[in-house]
Amino acid sequence: MIPTQLSVTRVLVLLFLLAGCASPGTVDPAVSKAPEDPRDYFDRLAQFISSAQKFQTTVRMGFDVLQDWGQKIEFGERHRITVVRPDRLRADILKSHGEESVVLFDGRRITAYNRTRNVFAQTEKTASIDEMLVYFLSDLRMRLPLALMFRSDFPEEIEKRLEALVFVEVSVVTDVPCVHLAGRTDEIDFEIWIPETGAPLPVRLTITYRDEAGQPKFWADFENWNMAPAVADADFLFTPPEGVERIPFLVEIEKALGERKSKGDD
């Protein structure tokens, strides 16, 4: 019967995998020796990114979402991030179910445009990227994964949060050998893979939200780092396409409702 044959095959595959997992219990220091203080690797990365005048990268990412019935389901996104300091940022976002959107910041305006639904929200904000990101995430309650990495104070911010950082190994299964580090803050666990040689730009990052129900995980694979992207000012400007509808940010509606309610209470 076909299912039984498949089952046997799967069992063999699983046993093979488990056998692989059951090999030596700890990292062999002779194979993966910490070449230097893990903090040095991490600091170098943080300094390199934060001091870059401009850069572009494509980030494939996925994250677990715990469902009501107890199962964690992973969803994916692809972000193409362009940063030109001090005040230009663009994120082209494709979600795994096909929805496309763009976040634009031209130094004076923040625009979130959903190409699939042909709507956009926009607000005036004259600021640097650092200020814009704080405003975008906290005040507008929007979302931009890995935003901290795009800030110029990334090294200081991560230093404030970092509680522990250890060397795991030099991974040779990545495209280039990477130093694999594992860190902790008071809220999350993370792992990062940084090329052993060359530009200290992250290849992979995972974050585990250990205090959240189900300990969901976020992962990001970085591709096509370009530290000299050819970009123009127009790339950060929003030109409303035909038939697009402007919608508010939710916080604007909530603010209006709150004001109306407080007037009603008076």
């Binding site: 990412m61 677990d64 715990l66 995430l137 935003a147 999350i188 959240e212 969901p216 976020f218 990001a220």
Partner: peptide
């Protein structure tokens, strides 16, 4: 589709 991990930030 959204949960704590979808934020992808280095804080909860």
């Amino acid at each position: 589709r959204m949960g704590p991990a979808s934020r992808g930030n280095l804080h909860a």
